[in-house]
C-alpha cells in the first residue's frame, strides 16, 4: 500500500468509516509491532504484551488526530505518538511499582525483592531512554542529510557567539510558527529566504550565513521525534508557555 492509499483510508476513518480504520490497523500491525520493538528493545507478542495494546491504542489515536496539512508523514507522526505513549506507560508502571513499598507489611525479604525489582525497572527504563536518545540522534543526522548538511558540518559552521545564535533561534521559531514557510522548507529542502527575511525582519545575509543552523533548529523544533533534543536545548520553552506554536509538532 502506498502513502496516498493510506492517506485516503485515514481520511475515511476520520470521517467515521470503521471499516477503513480496521483495515488500516490490520495492514499496519507489523509497523505497530516494529515501532514498539524499537522503543522496548525486546520481542513483543500480541498475545502476552501490554505494550502492544498501548501501541495499538496510540496508532488508533494517530489515525484520529493526524493532519497531513502540517507536513509530517503519517508514519512519522504515528511513530512519535506510539513512542510517547509507551514511555508514558513505562513511567506510570515505575510509579506503580514504587507505590506498594510504603504500605507493604510482608516480610523484609519480600520488601527487598520489591526494591530490587523497582531498581531493575528504573535501570531498564533509563536504558530504554538512552537507546531511544541514540536512535533520535541517528535519525537527526539522517534527516539533516536530506537537507544537505550533517552534524559534522554544523559543528564547523555553528555560530560561536550567543547573540548570533539567539538571532538565528528567533528566525527558526518564526519559521516554525508559519505553516506555509515550514511547508515550503520541507518541500524544497531549502530555506524560503526571501519570504523568511521579510517575516522575521532580518537581512538575507543573516539567513545565508546561518542557513544550515536554522534548518537544523527547525528540524529539531518541528518534529515530535526530536522532542528530547528540543527540551534539552530549551527550544521547547515557547510551547510550554502556550505560545503561537502550541500543538504544531503534536498534530503532524
Amino acid at each position: 500500500m502506498n502513502d496516498s492509499t493510506a492517506l485516503n483510508l485515514i481520511n475515511l476513518a476520520q470521517k467515521g468509516d470503521c471499516r477503513a480504520r480496521e483495515k488500516l490497523i490490520k495492514l499496519y500491525k507489523p509497523f505497530i509491532q516494529k515501532t514498539s520493538f524499537n522503543v522496548c528493545r525486546r520481542y513483543l507478542s500480541w498475545e502476552n504484551d501490554d505494550e502492544l495494546s498501548i501501541a495499538l491504542i496510540a496508532f488508533n489515536e494517530a489515525i484520529s488526530s493526524y493532519n497531513h496539512v502540517k507536513g509530517a508523514s503519517f508514519f512519522t507522526f504515528a511513530y512519535g505518538l506510539i513512542s510517547q505513549r509507551l514511555i508514558d506507560y513505562f513511567r506510570s508502571e515505575v510509579k506503580h511499582k514504587h507505590r506498594p513499598l510504603s504500605s507493604f507489611n510482608a516480610g523484609e525479604e519480600m520488601e527487598l525483592s520489591l526494591v530490587e525489582c523497582a531498581q531493575a525497572w528504573e535501570n531498564y527504563r533509563l536504558q530504554i531512554e538512552r537507546e531511544e536518545l541514540v536512535q533520535t540522534i541517528l535519525e537527526l543526522d539522517q534527516r539533516l542529510s536530506e537537507y544537505g548538511t550533517s552534524l559534522d558540518e554544523l559543528a564547523d559552521i555553528c555560530p560561536k557567539h550567543r547573540d548570533a545564535r539567539e538571532k538565528l533561534v528567533r528566525v527558526a521559531k518564526v519559521l516554525c510558527s508559519n505553516v506555509k514557510l515550514l511547508h515550503t522548507l520541507r518541500k524544497n529542502k531549502r530555506l524560503p529566504a526571501k519570504e523568511l527575511a521579510r517575516v522575521a525582519k532580518v537581512s538575507k545575509r543573516v539567513l545565508e550565513n546561518g542557513r544550515k543552523y536554522i534548518i537544523a533548529l527547525v528540524v529539531i523544533m518541528s518534529e515530535e521525534r526530536f522532542s528530547v533534543l528540543k527540551d534539552f536545548t530549551g527550544l521547547g520553552e515557547q510551547r510550554k508557555r502556550g505560545c503561537c506554536h502550541a500543538g504544531q509538532s503534536h498534530s503532524g
Partner: peptide, 26 residues
C-alpha cells in the same frame, strides 16, 4: 554547560556534541 554526545569519531579522535545552549561543537 551540559551537552549530549551526538557523534563519536574514534578514527579522527573527535566527537560532535550538542550543548544545552544550542551549540554544535566538535
Amino acid at each position: 554547560v551540559k551537552a549530549i554526545v551526538a557523534k563519536v569519531d574514534q578514527q579522527n579522535g573527535v566527537m560532535v556534541i550538542i550543548t544545552a545552549d544550542r551549540q554544535f561543537r566538535c
